[in-house]
Design a protein around this nucleic acid. Structure first.
Length: 475
DNA sequence: TCTGGGGTCCTAGGACCC
DNA sequence: TCTGGGGTCCTAGGACCC
């Protein structure tokens, strides 16, 4: 937007044209996927549960269809509670009419299948935009500034349902009716319809001049929504919404704002940024800008992951053996995934959650990056010692300070790292062998000197695919 | 809310260095 | 010795997101 140079930020971005940013958000994606392969589920209450097996009462709700939400079933709710609100439907034939009206279907999460569907969606997205930022399995930002514009759409073709008319829009002038319809809206509709046609799952699309407004817009008319927020209207679009509707405002921030008498995005926009900053730090200023419609973040593709982790819940226990077994299994899993992705790690950490919900983390950094499953296990177990006497309800293992370059380097035999690139570089990027790190390694685990010598051999082979494992559809 | 799993980014204090 | 200040790295925790 024009108006208001940002203090201390790049000031040379003056008369750049308004960007066109889409936020594409799949509607209860997991449920839509299940309906794709099981069409009988369409129109029925459907709950997709994680950690749930058919017939179970354990696990949590990953996604509830809109029909299931009518019964009060919500994301993250324990399956047991969901079942109270929405009993599981028996076999199809044995179902009476009455039973039909108050029961629903339950299915376990099948991520592999959802990834297949998501890849069809992504094909469309990448075809429709030069820059795509995939946020999760069911969500992405697109910068389509070069594909469309904020110009008013001409009165021209009303038969734009095919998308053809949009791909070849009328000359961009203000020739059309002085209505609100823009080329950007038409293009948004086109993308949405292509997704539905080519991936057979519904999406909601937000169209706006920046990321945060597009994000809010996509959620403003779910499901199957298309909400357009033209430049200059962002602040007024946001103003009536509760603060929690802003991306980045969770329960804690919401409460902090409420304590300041700030209930809506409009209140945020009107508040003194320094007051917000005093309460929330830099986030306060950021929030203020977003609420006023200012968000200069570029849409950029997501980079490589920063950490890999695995965690699992267990019935609260103080049993040391059980805890150690759990951590060992998690460690093996994390190390395996790191190796599959061809990445080295320099920090190994654990998480131990004590009832009721007391999160503890511990981490230890190594002298250099490694790919060493045994080491992940021994460090993780070593860190776990501190919690030997504590009851825990959840345990986790994480590797971070990831290094993907190293594995590439391993394939370039004889390449001398030399000066370039390395940050600080006290240890330099030496191959992840214990010959280099070995001397210090013994200090990092409980003591026992390490003897084995299984070539770490990071293999970049598997690397592929976005594989962001984060995925849930909690919208 | 009796809290599932996988992530990101930020902050704050301490260690250490120059 | 007192006196900074600036910078980086590390760990732990917190908030938030899907």
């Amino acid at each position: 937007m024009d108006g208001g140079t940002l203090p201390g930020t790049d000031t040379e971005r003056v008369d750049e044209p308004d960007r066109v940013v889409f936020h594409v958000d799949m509607d209860c994606f997991y449920a839509s996927c299940e309906r794709l392969r099981e069409p009988e589920l369409r129109g029925e209450p459907l709950v997709v549960g994680m950690g749930y097996e058919p017939g179970d009462t354990v696990g949590a709700v990953a996604t509830a269809s809109y029909e299931a939400r009518e019964f009060g079933v919500e994301s993250a709710m324990p399956i047991s509670e969901a079942l109270e609100r929405l009993p599981r439907r028996g076999t199809a034939d044995a179902t009476t009419e009455e039973e039909r009206s108050e029961t629903g279907y339950y299915r376990p999460v099948d991520l592999d299948f959802y990834k297949e569907v998501a890849s069809d969606v992504k094909d469309v997205l990448h075809d429709c935009a030069d820059v795509v930022r995939e946020v999760s399995i069911d969500e992405a930002y697109l910068d389509v500034t070069d594909r469309t514009a904020w110009d008013a759409a001409g009165a021209g073709s009303e038969a734009d349902a095919t998308g053809a008319a949009i791909a070849d829009p009328p000359p961009s002038t203000a020739a059309g009716p002085a209505s609100d319809r823009t080329l950007a809206e038409g293009y948004g509709r086109h993308v949405k319809e292509r997704i539905e046609r080519e991936a057979s799952v519904p999406a909601s699309v937000g169209v706006a001049p920046n990321m945060s407004a597009a994000k809010v817009a996509s959620g403003a008319d779910k499901p199957d929504g298309l909400v357009v927020v033209p430049p200059g209207t962002v602040a007024s679009f946001l103003a009536p919404l509760p603060t929690a509707a802003l991306h980045g405002v969770g329960p804690v921030t919401e409460r902090a704002l409420a304590d300041l008498g700030i209930e809506t995005a409009g209140d945020v926009a009107a508040a003194d940024p320094e007051t917000l900053a005093a309460e929330l730090g830099d986030r306060g200023r950021e929030l203020s800008r977003r609420a006023r419609g200012e968000d200069e973040r570029e849409v950029t593709p997501r980079g490589l992951p920063k950490s890999l982790s695995r965690e699992s819940s267990l019935p609260a226990t103080a049993d040391a053996d059980e805890k150690r077994e759990t951590v060992a299994a998690l460690a093996a899993d994390v190390a395996r995934r790191a190796r599959e992705r061809g990445c080295l790690y320099r920090t190994i950490g654990i998480k131990a959650v004590e009832p009721p919900f007391d999160v503890n983390t511990r981490a230890r950094s190594l002298p250099g990056p490694v790919d060493d499953p045994d080491l992940v296990e021994s460090v993780a177990l070593d860190l776990l010692d501190e919690f030997d006497d504590d009851r825990v309800r959840k345990l986790g293992v994480r590797v971070s300070k990831l290094d993907f370059a190293e594995s590439d380097q391993a394939t370039l035999a004889g390449f001398e790292a030399g000066e370039d690139g390395d940050r600080g570089g006290t240890q330099g990027k030496q191959p992840a062998s214990r010959n280099d790190v070995g001397a210090q390694i013994t200090d990092w685990i409980g003591g026992e000197p390490r003897t084995d010598d299984d070539e770490p051999a990071p293999d970049p082979a598997e690397q592929d695919d976005e594989g962001q494992a984060s995925l849930g559809d909690w919208s």
